[in-house]
């Protein structure tokens, strides 16, 4: 089942993500972001990295965590595909992300994401389901 959809946004790329729990919302957001960059089902979880982030509230936490994960693509040239969260509340997250070095011949790179923006990022909870919009600058 798809856990995100594209939004119509003129300049950049926006997605709406949802999850059955707060933790799932985070995982689906990370997967969606990396699916925008490449075919992540072709990426092998060969190396793992611990990613810890703190923030003032949960909207900031999600943005800052995604931004931290994007660093692996933009600087370390690694595509991430698996995300495991061991601790999560509104202001901190401890997670492990796994992936492998970019191989342009194998991974079908789609686009560069410059950044994760704060625009319209507002996590809402309804009947136990969590959802938000996220706009990426591309």
């Amino acid at each position: 089942m798809k856990h995100y959809e594209f939004l119509e946004h003129t300049a950049d790329i926006g997605i709406r993500v949802w999850g059955d729990s707060f933790k799932e919302l985070f995982i689906h957001s990370a997967k969606a972001m990396y699916e925008l960059i490449a075919d992540i089902n072709l990426v092998k979880p060969e190396s793992s990295f611990e990613v810890r982030v703190e923030a003032k509230d949960r909207d900031e936490l999600l943005r800052n965590w995604l931004s931290e994960l994007l660093y692996y693509f933009n600087v370390k040239e690694i595509l991430l595909t698996d995300f495991v969260i061991t601790e999560l509340d509104d202001t901190h997250i401890i997670s492990t992300a796994s992936g492998e070095k970019i191989d342009p011949d194998r991974h079908n790179l789609k686009r560069e994401i410059k950044a994760v923006t704060f625009h319209n990022l507002n996590i809402k909870e309804k009947n136990g389901e969590f959802a938000t919009e996220i706009i990426f600058d591309i």
Binding site: H9, A11, H119, D137
Partner: peptide
């Protein structure tokens, strides 16, 4: 002008 994030483009 078109829709950006924060400021319009």
């Amino acid at each position: 002008i078109h829709w950006g994030y924060g400021f319009s483009i």
